[in-house]
Write a protein that binds this DNA or RNA. Structure first.
Length: 455
RNA sequence: UCCUCAGUAGCUCAGCGGUAGAGCGGGUGGCUGUUAACCACUAGGUCGUUGGUUCGAACCCAACCUGAGGAGCCA
């Protein structure tokens, strides 16, 4: 007899016969002579309903005291259900694998996401988190598929780094020294110099793009910002492609194509989970995803966006002025009110952007872009990189950065420099967009946020 | 970091100055096909912490802790 997953059984077109299945009890309903037991093994959203007659092997030991959360092994024949599901199991034997104590916190009823965060080790057993994390896995696979199909090379940039990708945020210090030694003898540290957890693999990624042409990274990223919002985490996963012989227009096109590819992949491969999320989490989800999949994204320059906002007649809390950063409310207006679709804003004033972004011919702006989506805001940030040696050196000076620290980055411009561009896509923000889940802490298994690193 | 709101049973919440409540979950019993099953009975609480006001505080005041939402920073 073969061991089956719930997904294999429920997706069968022909009756699978007698099988063994293992899982965790979601709910049980007793009658006098038999019990209904529903089990879930995470292989899909739906449960398998098991009919356990009171006289089968193992019933007396296992079933009467069976509680939600317990793990069981059941064998039996898969038969058409008399109820609303297609298949159910007529059990022949049942065995308790692991009892669940009576204070098991997950109930059949809905729980708040805040409560479920406090039991992050058990929340994957819920429908919501099962759906989210199956989709997380599928989206990670689709990211690789998207780039591999296009001939991109996957590069593992370092987690521990001595270089700061300016503009990316505060860094976590990595050290083996105690506080006092760290202050007095920093050169005695493990690496002989101050080191940090990476805030971006971009600078290292550029070096590989300037050799392998098209590369991407996909790995954990760390920001020590004291950010307390629904879309920031101290540890998150980021995808950073870097493309040689590429300008900003191509860069934007790649970012847009990637979002559409991932949305289409989710619609095709996560239909059951999406249907659930559409029903219980975000009623407009499926409609929005279908829309994003098929419709071209909008593009607007920063300068035009500022004009548009100024002339919108809309009262904003914060001022709209050339040279100021666009606030959340401005970005929301663009993507949610005005265009009502994803929008890429590009060509930002150089004063508000980091040293490595390429100066445009107007002398005022740099070739930067942010891709904004409704409900979340910025999901992608990218730019064409400054490939001209003299201008890059001048930029370093203007930002009071030392060329010594960045010598290897500058070298790329000394030996066969080429135009190149790239972007960073926040994997969790993509997941929020694709699942409709509104808090980043609910799309990463064990979220790390200021003051919180449990589990 | 700033602003706002909230902490009462395992969970969701009611009570808002006068003896601590409900539904669900748990336990016990019943029920021949259920689907968040149903019916009956039952156990379960330092009302976030500390201090204050009051004859009396879950309730009013202060500080702190924890959580959430918004802002900034960004992915």
């Amino acid at each position: 007899m073969s061991r089956s997953t719930v997904a294999q059984i429920l997706r069968a077109t022909d009756a699978p016969g007698v099988v063994e299945v293992n899982g965790w009890v979601r709910t049980k309903r007793d009658s006098k002579a038999f019990s209904f037991v529903e089990i879930n093994d995470g292989s899909c959203l739906a449960n398998l309903q098991i009919i356990a007659d009171a006289d089968i092997e193992g019933y007396a030991e296992a079933v009467p005291t069976l509680r939600t959360g317990a793990s069981i092994k059941v064998t039996g024949e898969i038969v058409p259900s008399q109820g609303k599901q297609q298949w159910e199991m007529q059990a022949q034997t049942v065995q308790l694998l692991g009892d669940s104590e009576e204070d098991y916190p997950l109930q059949k009823k809905g729980h708040s996401p805040e409560f479920l965060r406090s039991i992050a080790h058990l929340r994957p057993r819920t429908n919501l988190f099962g759906a989210v994390f199956r989709m997380r896995s599928r989206m990670a696979y689709a990211v690789h598929q998207f780039f591999q199909e296009r001939g991109f090379v996957y590069v593992h940039t370092p987690i521990i780094t001595a270089s700061d990708c300016e503009g990316a945020g505060e860094m976590f210090r990595v050290t083996t020294l105690d506080g006092e030694t760290l202050e007095k003898q920093p050169d005695e540290d493990f690496f002989g110099k101050p080191t940090y957890l990476t805030v971006s693999g971009q600078l290292e990624g550029e070096t590989y793009a300037c050799a392998l042409s098209n590369i991407y990274t996909f790995g954990p990223t760390f920001r020590a910002e004291n950010s307390n919002t629904t879309r920031h985490a101290a540890e998150f996963w980021m995808i950073e492609p870097e493309i040689a012989f590429c300008d900003l227009q191509e860069d934007m096109a790649l970012a847009e194509a990637m979002i559409q590819y991932l949305v289409a992949d989710a619609l095709e491969h996560c239909a059951e989970d999406l249907k659930f999320l559409n029903k219980f989490v975000d009623k407009g989800l499926l409609e929005r995803l279908e829309f994003v999949k098929s419709r071209d994204f909008e593009r607007i320059t920063y300068t035009d966006a500022v004009e548009l906002l100024k002339n919108s007649g809309h009262q904003f809390e914060y001022p709209v002025e050339y040279g100021l950063n666009l606030q959340s409310e401005h970005e929301r207006y663009l993507t949610e009110e005005h265009f009502k679709c994803p929008v890429t804003v590009y060509n930002y004033p150089q004063e508000i952007k980091p040293f490595y972004m390429r100066k445009n011919d107007d002398g005022k702006t740099v070739a930067a872009m942010d891709l904004l989506v409704p409900g979340i805001g910025e999901i992608v940030g990218g730019s064409q990189r400054e490939e001209r040696l003299d201008i890059l050196r001048a930029n370093l000076g203007e930002h009071e950065l030392s060329e010594e620290d960045y010598y290897w980055y500058v070298d790329l411009r000394r030996y066969g420099s080429v135009s190149h561009a790239g972007f960073g896509l926040g994997f969790e923000r993509l997941l929020m967009f694709v699942t409709g889940v509104s808090n980043i802490r609910d799309v990463i298994p064990f979220p790390r946020t200021p003051g919180s690193a449990d589990f």
